[in-house]
Simulated scan of single mutants.
Amino acid sequence: MTGVGRWLTEAVPRGRVAAFRTLVYLFVAADLVIFTPWVRTRADVPGELYQPLLVGRLLPLPTPTPLLVHTIFWVLLALALLAATGRAPRALGWPVFLLYLEWMIIAMSYGKVDHDRFGLLVALAVLPTAGAARHGDRTRTEAGGWALRVTQIAVVCTYFLAAWAKLRFGGLEWMTGSVLARAILRRGTDLADLIAGVPYLLIVAQFGIMAFELGSPVVFLLRERWRHLTIGFFYSFHLVTMATITISFAPHLVAMTSFLPLERVRPLHWLRQTLAAPPAPTPSGPTERPAPRPPVQADDGDQDQVVPGRPVVP
C-alpha cells in the first residue's frame, strides 16, 4: 500500500467510530426538530417554485409533496434514533444517508444553499462502511479510520473551497470590501457592534478569514497535539462567528469532531459507575453514647440483692 493509502486508512480505535456515529445520528434527529423543521413548510409551496439542485435534476428526484415531505421527516427521525444505538450500521446507515440527502435537496432547492452541511453529508455516506463498533473499544480498525479520514477531508474542503469561492466571485477585493459590515448590519449582535466601531478591524478580520481558510489543509501535517490545538482554534473561530453574526455552522462542527479522540468520551461507562457507586457517608457529628446497662440483680429467692460497688456476702 502506498503512503497515501496508509494515510487514508490509518487505523483508529473502534470506540472513536462508535462515539462519532452516535453523535452524527443524534444530530440528524436534532436537526429535523430543532435546526431545519422549516423544511416541512416546503410541502405547502407550489411545485413550480421548486428548482432542484444539480443532483436532483440528474437522478431525477420527485417534486416535493405533503405526503413525501412528511413521510421523509418521520421515517428519517425514527431511523436516525435507531442508528445512533450503533446496531445494524449498514441496514440503518444507508437509508439515513439517502433520506437526509433528499431532505437537504428539498431544503436547498428554493434559492438558498448552505455549505455547512457538506462534511455531515459525507460522514453519513461513509459511516455505513465503517462496520460494527462499540463504545470504549480500543481495538483499531482501518475501515473506521477511512470513514473518519474522508470526513476530515470534507471538513477541510469546506474551508478551502469557501476561500476559493470568495476569490472566484469577489476577487481580491473581497478582503478589502464591506462583507462583514453588511453581515453585521443584517444580523449582528451587540458584540459585533462593538467590534465594528474599531477602525479597520473588520478589514483585518477579512484578511484573517481568507488566510485561515486557505491554510486549513495544514492541519493534516501537524502532530497529534498540535492538530488538536488547531481544531480547538477552528471551534473558537465558529464561536466568535456565532457570537457576532449568529451563524452557528452546527452540522459542520459535528463533522469536525472526526478529528478528536472521541473514544475517551464514555457516557454509558460513567453512568454505570455512578449508579454502582457506594452511598455517600452520612455527615459526621456528635455521636450518642449507648445508655448504661442496668445492674444485674439476683433473684428474690435464696440470694441477696446485688448492689453495685459492694461485694456479695454469702
Results as ranks from 00 to 15, higher is better:
Gly111Met: 15
Leu79Val: 14
Leu101Asn: 10
Pro128Glu: 02
Trp94Ser: 00
Val122His: 07
Arg117Tyr: 13
Ile106Glu: 13
Ser109Phe: 08
Pro89Ile: 05
Gly93Ile: 02
Ala123Asn: 02
Leu127Ala: 11
Pro95Glu: 08
Tyr100Gly: 03
Val113Asp: 00
Phe118Ala: 13
Leu79Glu: 07
Leu98Trp: 12
Thr85Glu: 04
Leu99Ser: 05
Val113Arg: 01
Ala88Glu: 09
Ile106Tyr: 09
Met108Phe: 14
Phe118Trp: 13
Gly111Gln: 12
Ala125Glu: 10
Met108Trp: 12
Arg90Gln: 14
Glu102Tyr: 07
Asp116Met: 05
Ala123Gln: 09
Trp94Ile: 14
Glu102Gln: 15
Ala83Asp: 12
Leu82His: 01
Ala84Cys: 08
Thr85Gly: 14
Tyr100Ile: 06
Tyr100Lys: 12
Ala80Gln: 03
Trp103Tyr: 14
Arg87His: 04
Leu92Gly: 12
Ser109Val: 03
Leu98Ala: 15
Met104Gln: 14
Asp116Trp: 02
Asp114Ile: 10
Phe97Asn: 04
Arg87Lys: 09
Ala80Trp: 00
Ala83Thr: 08
Leu81Arg: 00
Thr129Val: 11
Val122Pro: 11
Ile105Leu: 15
Gly93Pro: 05
Leu82Gln: 07
Val126Cys: 05
Leu79Lys: 03
Glu102Met: 10
Ala125Gly: 12
Ala84Pro: 02
Gly131Ser: 11
Ala88Pro: 01
Thr129Trp: 10
Leu121Met: 15
Gly86Thr: 06
Asp114Gly: 08
Val122Glu: 04
Val113Met: 13
Leu124His: 08
Val126Met: 05
His115Glu: 11
His115Arg: 11
Leu121Asn: 10
Leu124Ser: 07
Leu121Ile: 12
Ser109Gln: 09
Leu98Phe: 13
Ser109Tyr: 07
Val96Pro: 03
Glu102Ile: 02
Leu120Lys: 08
Asp114Gln: 13
Pro89Gln: 04
Leu82Pro: 00
Asp114Cys: 05
Leu124Thr: 06
Asp114Leu: 14
Val96Phe: 01
Arg90Ile: 12
Val113Glu: 02
Gly111Asn: 11
Ser109Gly: 06
Met108Lys: 11
Tyr110Asp: 07
His115Met: 15
Gly131Glu: 07
Leu81Ile: 15
Val126Ala: 05
Gly119Phe: 03
Ile105Met: 09
Ile105Tyr: 01
Ala80Lys: 01
Gly119Arg: 03
